[in-house]
Amino acid sequence: MMNYIWLALIIIGIITAVGTDIYESSVNKYKNDVEFDALIELKEKPSVETQVKGILKVSGEYYKNFYSLKNFTQDTIRNEITLRLKSDSTGTAILNISETTPDFWKLMAKGKGTNTDKLIANVKKFEKVGENSYKVSLVFEKISLVKIKQVLNAVIEYSDIAVKIAIGLIGVMALWLGIMKIGELAGLINLLAKIVKPLTKRLFPDIPPEHPAIGAIIMNISANMLGLGNAATPLGLKAMEELQKLNPKKDTASDSMVTFLVINTSGMTLIPATAIAVRAALGSGDPAAIISTTIVGGFAATIAGVTAAKILQRLKIFKKELEENNENKKEVEG
C-alpha cells in the first residue's frame, strides 16, 4: 500500500509540474521577449557605461493587462531599478525585488531559481520625456520551467529537512529512553500496564497484559492528549520497539502496531495548543473556542481509525501477509 501511495505522490507531482510548465510556456505567462513600457525617474543624469539608480513607475492598469492578472488592485507601482546604459540608448537594467515589489515580479524572480532577489532586463529604448524622467522599454530575462525548478529545489530541501528532524530528535529521544529504562527496571511501567489492563486487553489482544509495551503505549497516548509532542514521539518510538520484540516477522507490521499507530495519527488531544496559539496571534476574540469541537473531531477520528484497523486486519489480503511470513519462517527453520 505504502508503495502505491509513495509512487503516486511522486508521479502525480512530476506530471503536474511538467504539464504546468508546458501550459505556461504555451500561453507565455511570463511574457518572455515582450517589451514592457515604463517611466523611470533618475536622481542624476545618466552617463554611458556607469550605473545609475532610479525608480521605475508604471500604472497598475498597464501591469494588470500586460501580465493578464485577474486580481490586481494597486494603482501605481514604484520599484527600485539600476540602469547601465550604452551610447546607443540600450543597455541592461536590474530590478531589485523587495517587500513592496508586486507579487507577480516576486514570482518571476523566484521562478528563476538563482539570484532570486533581482530581475534582469534588457533596455530596448531609452528616451528623455521630462526633467529627470525617462521612458523605457524593457525585455525581462527569459523565465521558463518554473515548476520543474521548484520541484527540484523541493527534493534537495526536503531531504535536508528529513535529516534535520531526525537529528533534532536525538536529545529528547535519549532523555526519554533513559527515563523509561529506570521505570522499566523499577517495575513502574508494568504497574502502569496493570492499571489500564481492562481497556488495553481489548485494544491490543495479542500483547501480554503486563508487557512493558502497554506501559509505553499508555504514556505516549497520555503525552499526545496533553499536547506534549516533544515527549510523545520518543515514548511512541519506545512503544514501537517493545511491540517489535513481540512481532513474529520483523519487516511486517503486526496488528497491534497498526492499531497503536492509528490511535497516534488520529491526534486525539485535549488541548489543541498550536491552533489556539495561531488563533490568538491573529487576534481572535476567543482563541479557545475550538477546544470542544477539536476534542469531538479527534475522538471521532480515533474511533473510526481503530474500528477500521480492527476490521481490516481480518481481511484476507492483510492477514495473508502475516501468514506468508510465518510459512517462510517455518521453511527456514525446517
Binding site: 500500500m1 505504502m2 519487516d251 511486517t252 497498526v258 492483510f318 502475516l322
Partner: peptide
Amino acid sequence: IRKTRHAVIA
C-alpha cells in the same frame, strides 16, 4: 518495518 499492511488505509 517496510510492509505496513493496512496501516495506511486505516
